[in-house]
Amino acid sequence: MNPLAELRYFFTALGYFTRVPVPRWVGFKPEWLNSAARYFPLVGALLGALAALVYLAALHVFPPGVAVLLSMAATLLATGAFHEDGLADCLDAFGGGYAREDVLRIMHDSRIGAFGAIGLVVALALKWQVLASLPPMRAAMLMIAGHAASRACAISYLVSLDYVRAEGKAKPVAQRMSFAALLCAFAFGLPWLFWPAWPDWRAGIATLTVLVALRYALGRYFVKRIGGYTGDCLGFAQQVFELAIYLVGLAWISF
């Protein structure tokens, strides 16, 4: 393993998924993106840490609901709403298209429709309300777990599904991921699930079980509708996984 190359892959992942400036020496080649995919969950953990810091700092001045909204705004600004755009595009496409060609055409359209707009509002509102309902430290830790583990689960589709577009922004990422790279991604993303409720490891197991079931269901749905996945599908999946982590976290302490 070349440490310099691995550092370059990390910065490539950071530059791809966020608007954070990366050092000029890193450069960029599209073929690096597939190797950089193993670091996507680590970038997610950093984004979750940003959200947690903004949230905890804002709590000194504002009530929890406002603090959560400020933390969400921080991550949306940092990522350029990268995954939320995929969520909206997929909801429009799967909700408004019937044939595979119609779904892919609508998904490629940059305009947002009723399904996408409504779904995006509901998803953001659910995140806001769930996180605002949690005890502060539990909410902060779940932000990190949610951003990291959701990205680990989303990129797992690079191992099992086919990319269905001839071209696309996600095409360089969408080469088949090796099992070793996937294990590396899981190591960066999944252990965070056991942190918020430590030492009650059962909460982490429950969350992981829900994520596995969701991954299977979403994968089957993608294959059924379009024969595989697109970059928008990965963004859609990440948002679903992140929201599921928050909901399970709230349900665990509620019941």
Results as ranks from 00 to 15, higher is better:
3 P>E: 04
8 R>E: 10
9 Y>V: 09
16 Y>M: 06
19 R>H: 15
23 P>E: 13
23 P>M: 05
24 R>V: 08
29 K>G: 03
29 K>P: 05
33 L>D: 01
45 A>Y: 07
45 A>K: 09
46 L>I: 15
50 L>C: 06
60 H>W: 12
65 G>P: 03
69 L>I: 11
76 L>I: 08
78 A>E: 11
82 F>C: 07
84 E>L: 14
85 D>Y: 01
90 C>M: 06
92 D>W: 05
102 D>E: 13
106 I>F: 12
128 W>M: 03
130 V>T: 09
133 S>P: 02
135 P>T: 02
137 M>S: 02
139 A>F: 05
140 A>Q: 06
143 M>W: 09
143 M>V: 14
153 C>F: 14
157 Y>P: 01
166 A>T: 14
168 G>E: 12
173 V>R: 04
180 A>R: 15
183 L>W: 12
190 L>V: 05
191 P>S: 11
196 P>M: 05
198 W>Y: 10
207 T>K: 08
208 L>F: 13
213 A>V: 05
214 L>P: 07
217 A>W: 10
220 R>V: 13
220 R>A: 11
222 F>M: 09
223 V>A: 02
225 R>G: 01
225 R>F: 04
226 I>W: 02
231 G>N: 01
231 G>I: 00
232 D>H: 00
235 G>Y: 00
236 F>K: 05
242 E>F: 02
243 L>C: 07
245 I>C: 14
245 I>P: 15
246 Y>T: 07
246 Y>E: 05
249 G>Q: 03
250 L>K: 08
254 S>D: 10
